[in-house]
């Protein structure tokens, strides 16, 4: 039984982020894995899950989410073996601090050594990064610039868009996956959803699952890497 928890969608779920949970659950179910897709609402105890999905959010709700997750000992759950897939505000609140709205600095959960400050302007637009040896396509819409501490690996290398603001996107630390590609990035990148499933289920590889999602990925790849990209084109999977 694989339990997937969408965390506080009332606070963190601005851009169709619930899609990531749906995609992960469906890709597991269609391979005969028994899945429980649950929503942790605030005001209720945080459910026990194998993976927690954190979405994007506006600033006030983001700060409330931090205090609720701190009360729920979120950090200890990761230490105990839970995986986290976070986007946007979800990424920022996993770090040591963030100041997004105005210049006031707020303490994050401190799961990862990373500091987010407000950028001069919002980054809104198509987003392309290289994760491992595969191109990830997506969309970003955020105002943050994130500095990783020494030894914290990025999630990907930015080819198009801003990401953390230093040529890299997000971070990858132990069981924490975090990217600025908001919304249903797992819907746009079925290979990434499958990589995440492999990690969760301890699989070395996964049976292909043909669907229109593969066509979507190839189409976005074609559109987004056709022009305006400075790095050489690397072949994508899928």
């Amino acid at each position: 039984m694989l339990t997937i928890a969408q965390v506080y969608p009332e606070l963190l779920g601005t851009y169709g982020d619930g899609g990531n949970g749906l995609v992960l659950a469906e890709r597991a179910r269609r391979r005969d894995v028994e899945v429980r897709l649950v929503t942790s609402r605030f005001g209720e105890p945080l459910v026990d899950a194998d993976i927690y999905l954190l979405g994007g959010g506006e600033d006030g709700p983001q700060r409330l989410a931090v205090s609720l997750l701190r009360e729920a000992s979120f950090r200890a759950r990761i230490d105990d073996g839970a995986t986290v897939f976070a986007v946007c505000a979800g990424l920022q609140l996993l770090g040591t601090s963030f100041s997004v709205e105005g210049d006031d600095e707020f303490a994050g959960l401190g799961v990862v050594d990373a500091v987010t400050r407000r950028g001069a302007r919002r980054a809104v637009g198509d987003f392309v990064t290289v994760v491992g040896d595969t191109i990830m396509v997506g969309f970003e819409n955020h105002g943050g610039m994130t500095n990783r501490g020494d030894g914290v690996a990025p999630f990907g290398a930015v080819q198009r868009g801003r990401g953390n603001g230093d040529g890299h996107d997000g971070f990858r630390a132990n069981r924490v996956w975090a990217t600025y590609a908001h919304g249903p990035v797992l819907a746009l990148n079925p290979w990434l959803a499958d990589d995440l499933l492999c990690e969760l289920l301890g699989w070395k590889s996964v049976e292909p699952l043909a669907s229109v999602a593969d066509r979507l990925y190839n189409e976005r790849l074609r559109v987004l890497t056709r022009r305006g990209n400075r790095s050489p084109h690397r072949p994508g999977r899928g």
Partner: peptide, 17 residues
Amino acid sequence: RLDLATRLWYARVEAAV
């Protein structure tokens, strides 16, 4: 249309592009 068809595939709704 491919984003829509993908959304529908995950919703288990029959979709034709």
